[in-house]
Design a protein around this nucleic acid. Structure first.
Length: 605
DNA sequence: CTAGGGTTAG
């Protein structure tokens, strides 16, 4: 045995082997090496010679790192505790094992600072490891992030590239793009990772224009890599920037990475989100080895562009041809169910979910709740919700929306209380459902109360959609002057959406006085919107003011000759389409039948 | 320390 291992008993060789075990996750070989080392005092015990101190440290550190990388925190900690001597690398190796838990990483950092307060104890590896651990806790770890930032400043490491990059990333993870940006501006040097972290972070923070501006700025300073292009594509898909997406498509071709799998799916994502399904499919067809991500992108594209039946078709083909499908694909296809979806197909997909063991996936369950709700099956939707192991805020939003959709106003408010009691944080969508329910019940007073409570009690800034709900509510109640005042006194008085809502109500109640006022506002805000003219002419005709109506119609015709006609035709076409594809025509669709047939072969029902 | 897809309302 000893002979067999003896060629390995060189400390550099040993630590190299251990590091390879760590990278490969080969715990068995790592533990075997540990056993051998433990028997060899040369590299294991502290000897009086200075040279051996280095050997001992390197060997022990390699052991700690190996256990950390294999995910054996306890073993790493045990080896660490037994160490006769430690340096900052020992601590960093141990920290690596705690990287999945922010509180553990911080506790270790505190311990490290207490035990080794001498300068140089903390290096950039320490700080980046702790920061990436903090990033796992999202918004909750802002304080931790800021504390590490303070430490970095006092160590003089905050402006360096590695720590600066980790701080930028950490602040984005905490939901503080402003702080990330401040670190970015103070950094002395920046590399491609710095820039990519900014482009990606801004895109994830939904600050798409800033993300794309940074991307353009970076191209003058450093070369972009694959990750940078992917991050910029994220910004394009988020902001529906088709033109930018096409430009970046050109850049990735020029960079020779247009055949990269991730880049291809990123491009497809941009195209399909922007409604350019032909372009998305072109990328899809040119891809040599499309996987389930590609399938998901295309399914989502079909679903979001009103081609739900094509989504079902593609999905069913995938299932029957045995192409690998994961939970994401299933969530995506469930999202293709429209207002009046074929219940039987939904049921089959649910069977597939059970068969594939996706029932524990929160996304899938949320989609199922929705699907059943949109099929008109409230009971099924409740059943999925009740059976969920882990509910998030969106799960609650889905079930609340289900009840709201089925007109159970009081249940909506009861569920809202349960949601809070369950510890789920309400989101802006929760309040949209609540306001929707108020509107249904006809309680404008309650609606106003809820709107006020959003910022006061829950710290959620109401968006223009919430205001639109309230305008709608007041409008339905016929309180048109109140609605007008509500818009004017609020933060969204320049939003066309609100004046449109008011104008719709005026048209319903035949109130030309407030209606004309709203129309004037709308014509200033969005002069090319034909819907305004249509509504105004409706108001005039309902009052019998034919001359005024004729004037509006004439104006409309003049506009019709302008080059913006295309837009209104598309809008008109959409209207006509959604009318034709109503509840009655859906079940006859051949595509849905085919999808069900294909699925039934697989799910057996 | 940067890196492809999924769920909510309208």
């Amino acid at each position: 045995m000893r002979d067999a291992w003896s060629p390995l008993l060189n400390y550099a060789h040993l630590s190299g082997l251990l590091s390879r075990c760590g990278r490969a996750g080969d715990l068995r070989l790592g533990a075997a090496l540990h056993a051998v080392i433990a028997k060899n005092p040369v590299h294991f015990r502290l000897c009086p010679h200075r040279a051996s101190l280095h050997h001992v440290l390197v060997t022990w550190n390699a052991l700690v790192a190996m256990y950390s990388r294999c995910g054996r925190r306890d073993d790493a900690a045990r080896v660490f505790d037994e160490m006769p001597v430690r340096d900052s690398i020992s601590w960093n190796s141990l920290l690596a094992a705690a990287a999945s838990s922010p509180s553990d990483a911080l506790a270790l950092l505190r311990q490290m600072l207490r035990s080794a307060p001498a300068a140089g104890a903390c290096d950039h590896a320490t700080l980046t490891t702790v920061l990436s651990a903090c990033a796992r806790d999202g918004a909750a770890s802002l304080r931790a992030c800021a504390a590490v930032h303070g430490l970095a400043v006092s160590c003089g490491l905050d402006a360096g590239v590695p720590v600066g990059n980790a701080l930028v990333t950490g602040y984005f993870e905490c939901g503080c793009p402003g702080s990330a940006e401040r670190v970015f501006t103070t950094m002395a040097d920046r590399n491609v990772i710095t820039w990519t972290a900014m482009v990606s972070g801004m895109a994830r923070a939904e600050r798409y224009q800033e993300s794309l501006a940074l991307f353009r700025q970076m191209r003058r300073e450093v070369d972009a890599n694959c990750a940078t292009y992917l991050s910029s594509l994220l910004a394009c898909s988020g902001s529906l920037a088709a033109r930018e997406g096409q430009q970046i498509h050109g850049l990735v071709v020029k960079a020779g990475i247009d055949t990269d799998l991730h880049v291809e799916s990123g491009l497809m994502d941009v195209y399909s989100k922007c409604g350019l399904m032909e372009d998305a499919l072109r990328v899809f067809r040119s891809c040599r080895d499309p996987d389930e991500v590609f399938m998901t992108v295309i399914v989502v594209g079909f679903a979001q562009n009103g081609l739900g039946e094509k989504a079902f078709e593609l999905f069913a083909e995938m299932v029957s041809s045995g192409i690998h499908i994961d939970a994401n694909t299933v969530s995506a296809v469930l999202g293709a169910f429209g207002a009046s979806a074929p219940f039987a197909l939904g049921k089959q997909i649910h069977t597939l979910v059970i068969k594939k063991c996706f029932g524990g996936n929160t996304y899938v369950c949320n989609s199922l709740i929705n699907m059943y709700s949109k099929c008109g099956e409230l009971q099924e939707s409740i059943q999925v919700f009740d059976g969920m192991a882990r509910k998030n805020s969106i799960s609650w939003n889905c079930i609340i929306a289900s009840f709201a959709r089925h007109g159970h106003g009081s249940e909506v408010f009861r569920l809202f209380e349960s949601m809070k009691a369950d510890g789920a944080k309400p989101t802006y969508v929760t309040f949209l459902s609540l306001l929707h329910a108020c509107s249904h019940v006809g309680s404008a007073k309650k609606g106003l109360e809820i709107l006020n409570s959003m910022s006061m009690q829950y710290g959620i800034q109401p968006r223009v959609e919430h205001y639109a709900c309230v305008v709608d509510m007041l409008g339905r109640a016929g309180q048109l002057d109140d609605a007008k005042a509500f818009i004017q006194d609020g933060p969204f008085k320049d939003s066309a959406l609100l004046w449109q809502a008011l104008m719709g109500a005026c048209s319903f109640h035949k109130n030309s006085e407030v209606g004309r006022y709203a129309a004037e506002k709308l014509l200033l805000l969005d002069p090319d919107c034909t819907a305004t003219y249509v509504l105004l002419s409706n108001i005039y005709s309902s009052e019998g003011r034919w001359e005024d109506r004729a004037r509006v119609m004439k104006k409309m015709r003049e506009m019709g000759l302008k080059k913006d006609t295309g837009k209104s035709w598309i809008e008109l076409e959409k209207e006509v389409r959604s009318f034709v594809v109503g509840p009655m025509s859906r079940p006859d669709s051949a595509a849905v039948d085919d999808a069900m047939l294909l699925l039934s072969e697989v799910t057996g029902n």
